[in-house]
Amino acid sequence: MMLDSFLIRAALAGLGVALAAAPLGCFVVWRRMAYFGDATAHASILGVALALSFDVSVFAGVLAVSLAMATTVSTLSGRGYAMDTLLGVLAHSALAFGLVAVSFLQGIRIDLMGYLFGDILAVGKPDLAMIWGGAAMVLALVAWRWSALLTATLNPDLAYASGIDPKREQMVLTLALALVVAVAIKVVGVLLIAAMLIVPAAAARPFARTPEVMAVMAAVIGGVSALGGLQAAFVFDTPTGPTIVCVAAVLFAVASLIDLIRRAVA
């Protein structure tokens, strides 16, 4: 059967994450939430430690901790804290506490590198089901709220005047972000999840005239990065998660260069 090949499973896992991350990544870019994504993703290593010590599924642990972190950050952001500093503190201390917590786990052989940088080649059929299930949920959530999310992103008062509660839309984004983190941890790992959100969206920007086109192009660029990265990792024998992000970064550089040349000519 097709899914018996680990390479096919890896490719499908990468595509699933790229698809879910693309539209959400656009909102992360538009709303300047890059650090927010970082904090949420970094906190998830704490979720891994908790899940292993309480013997629940890693997915559930990561989802719970990411959601708690994302909610905390999004609540604080409404109260006029110096967000830049606060997010820097939260993102890195969450990672540090997570790493310390993992070191307490005695007797369990834990592949720390696998969680930090992902282990896409070890994706099994249950993982695949989880990744595509999560991705489908994220896509459905974002598609359902798309117009309201966009309006709230443009201006909160404009949203209120149209009968949309921007705080509710912020919660939708928060939930979707936690889901993406939980889904992506196996594929690119805690440290590089934010890259999968931001880099494809940023690469798509110069070629899009509407938000919808940007989201679709980000998905395509993310998908190409996942497949290209997998291929490159196989050829050069490099770690897969970081290679995927490298391919995305190269695509971003090419896109920026094309944009630069186009502007110079015009």
């Binding site: 538009w30 709303r31 443009l154 201006n155 086109v213 940007m214």
Partner: peptide
Amino acid sequence: LHIDPTLPIT
């Protein structure tokens, strides 16, 4: 109304 330059919209 400030529209972030990263947000393309006609």
